[in-house]
Design a protein around this nucleic acid. Structure first.
Length: 175
DNA sequence: CCCTGATTCGC
DNA sequence: GCGAATCAGG
């Protein structure tokens, strides 16, 4: 995959919004988090000095054998074009999460074991991506329980997702 | 072990 | 320019 203008723009936007490199890589698709980080550096985008994300930043200080980075940054002139549509929320049209068709659990308060109530941006490859709540309302979240690498869902939801229709009805009725 | 970003360097 | 490997840390 190559860095098209669109992809670079998306990278800039998501990075500016504080998403982690791995999350950005997931949304872009076809690239690793290393690729994202590498690109960020090449673009001279400001790193995560200490804010937002959390960990592991401020690496440079403890890297003695790295002459590549003089104490004085290359002016971060990143002039961001305001090309974004006015009413467009980032998480509205850019997200490409695979939401299963029958994913939506109706009215009732589904009695699911546990839910970590993750926001979309908190999902990783091994968190359950079972959607909960109304995607149009702000209580929407994802299950988020640990899922094995193979499945996009936790054990509980994997069973619901992959059951034949007939069985699913029973499961739904039970829930 | 999970994750984070940072850096290096062969390609 | 690219990104895997590696490092360093939470």
């Amino acid at each position: 995959m190559n860095w098209t203008d669109e992809r670079v723009e998306k990278l800039k936007r998501l990075w500016a919004e504080g998403l982690s490199a791995s999350q950005i890589a997931a949304q872009l698709g076809g690239v690793s988090r290393n690729a994202v980080i590498g690109k960020v550096h090449r673009l001279n985008l400001p790193g995560r000095a200490k804010a937002g994300g959390s960990t592991g930043a401020s690496r440079s200080a403890k890297r003695p054998a790295a002459p590549a980075r003089p104490a004085n940054y290359p002016a971060r002139v990143a002039t961001r074009p305001v090309a974004r549509t006015v009413g467009a929320t980032a998480l509205k049209d850019d997200v490409e999460v695979a939401v299963p068709e029958m994913s939506y659990v109706p009215s009732n308060n589904v009695v699911v074991p546990i839910s970590r109530k993750l926001a979309l941006t908190d999902l990783t490859e091994r968190t359950c991506k079972w959607p909960m709540g109304d995607p149009l309302k702000d209580d929407f979240h994802f299950c988020g329980v640990d899922a094995s690498e193979a499945s996009p869902y936790c054990g509980y939801h994997a069973r619901l997702a992959y059951q034949p229709v007939a069985d699913r009805r029973k499961a739904a009725a039970r829930a």
